[in-house]
Design a protein around this nucleic acid. Sequence first.
DNA 1: AATTAGCACTCGGTAACTTGGAGTGCTAAC
DNA 2: GTTAGCACTCCAAGTTACCGAGTGCTAATT
Lengths: 344, 344
Amino acid sequence: MLLTDRQLLILQVIVDDFIRSAQPVGSRSLSKKEEISFSSATIRNEMADLEELGYIEKTHTSSGRIPSEQGYRYYVDHLLSPQVLNQQDISIIQSIFAEKIFEFEKIIQRSAKILSELTNYTSIVLGPAVSINKLKKIQIIPLNKETAVAIFVTDTGHVENRTFSLPASVDASDLEKTVNILNDRLAGVSLEDLNDKIYKEVAMLLRQHIHNYDLMLHSIADSLKMPATEKLFFGGKTNILSQPEFHDITKIRSLLTMIDQEEWIYNLIRKESAGIHIKIGRENNNSIMDNCSLITATYSAGLENLGTIAILGPTRMEYSRVISLLQFLSKDLTAVLTKLYQNK
Amino acid sequence: MLLTDRQLLILQVIVDDFIRSAQPVGSRSLSKKEEISFSSATIRNEMADLEELGYIEKTHTSSGRIPSEQGYRYYVDHLLSPQVLNQQDISIIQSIFAEKIFEFEKIIQRSAKILSELTNYTSIVLGPAVSINKLKKIQIIPLNKETAVAIFVTDTGHVENRTFSLPASVDASDLEKTVNILNDRLAGVSLEDLNDKIYKEVAMLLRQHIHNYDLMLHSIADSLKMPATEKLFFGGKTNILSQPEFHDITKIRSLLTMIDQEEWIYNLIRKESAGIHIKIGRENNNSIMDNCSLITATYSAGLENLGTIAILGPTRMEYSRVISLLQFLSKDLTAVLTKLYQNK
DNA sequence: AATTAGCACTCGGTAACTTGGAGTGCTAAC
DNA sequence: GTTAGCACTCCAAGTTACCGAGTGCTAATT
């Protein structure tokens, strides 16, 4: 069954008003709004219908109405008027990129911080996957007789390092030869493929040149089991505490605890197709996220989807504003990173 | 004025009981304790004296007593019976070191986690200062025509890296020469002294060998302005939420916000002399820390004081247990790190 | 002189009750 | 189809009553 224009108007005003005030909206206060030119009685009738259809709810028998999850969903899908960002927001976001920086992490970290400050919600940024970067150079630096550090530099300037124990039989020239072979064979290979490639292509070469090649091989290969997890950055972790709907300490605790556990966040933000995605309340499939919504956007470099920026807030979230901010930031991030990557 | 033995006994029992129950302690319940063999009326008289001396307080006219900050202070200084750790605690702590690890950070991070789990308070670990480590090797790896990554490896296996822009006039052989000079001159220098040393000793050498040496010099030196901050690690950030005395959301918010701001924590944990330090409530000189205590312990490698482990909890903290745990862990950390450092 | 029993008093917390206001649903009139 | 009117519902805030745990003081006891 389709909603009438009047029902849509009422639904929209209810959602807008509740997002602003966090108070149930009654027919009388609705009838006083400019946009609305019919009486409270009419509104009551329409609200009864909207409730029957599942778009709004009462908190108790004689209370005003609040949007249901389904109501928010409809609002987000059909009623959202895209908010135009004001100049101040825009320049704050652009300040992220003002300074000349070479490292992703700094940019990303600052994005998270500013996003949370602009919205008063919690921001989560999933950093670019290191594992798809291509290897630029490997270096192995012995620390003492027993241990050495392997350093992997990617074409994006990211540096990974691993300490590993050095087989006693390996001497300096062996090490040098090995590093040369590795660099020769592995440059340009993505980090996630390194391990594979080492066993398939490099092992043979090593055998020909290096005494005790197998010990060496395993030591290095072991240290190569990259933790492929993308780094997470947060902003405004405690912002939930200022939302009026979260006065229950156990609810807050479970939310904050979830935020501090990276696996949970990975589950929540799973890589999605490009663009904006909105998950409202139970759509997140996680009871901790009841009464919370998550809006995600992706950013990329060139064609490659790199990471995700997200805002976690109450279902009573300023969807319009958050979406605009995310769209704008993701566009800017993509532009900057694309440029950075091209340069490589 | 000195306290009588009986007053000491009563003070001790009050503190112990309040730490356990979080409830004000009344004379009647005190008189029922085994340790106490006199009537509630006597206890009331003694409590009136203790209150007059500032060791205990009432929450309202006819309530039981709770320890004052001064009371906790006296308790900590004179009444604390050192708790012997049980076997389970000990083996949990030792599990931190079970796995063979080369990297500090992992050990430190795990320490923070386990400490918070054992105590149910928030743990803070100030990692070893990177800046006192000695340089083992510098590498510079060009990414493209304009940028390069400088990599600094310390004798402890720690790796720092900085991306910087490469002067257009520098070619590969210049770079190689520079790296050689740097390694030749700077090996063994502590990171914090690098910048100094570069200008004082290396500049001249570079001038002799490298065309356009000054651009090169500044690029590298700039990237060397190490952020000398020691890394912070946390465990159980949300544990405060389960303490009954913190039911006020604004209090919780200010505490959690403080924890998320590293400068605040540095202020709180300032480097202190070796050993255990206890700061109760206002002794922390920070109103956010009202009703909170902080216990810190230092750990070292050899003679060098490396870092700090700390527990943040309510003033109503299990001082005895926390102190024992910190002592034990700091001893173990010191032992392990001393060994690691010797090996270098 | 120190200890204790006894008692009046205080205060917080809980439960029961009252009241006012905001809101609803329904009916009848427009 | 819309709206005015009205009875009804429920929450929230305020009031009152009451219980229990605790105190301080005094007088009796050791």
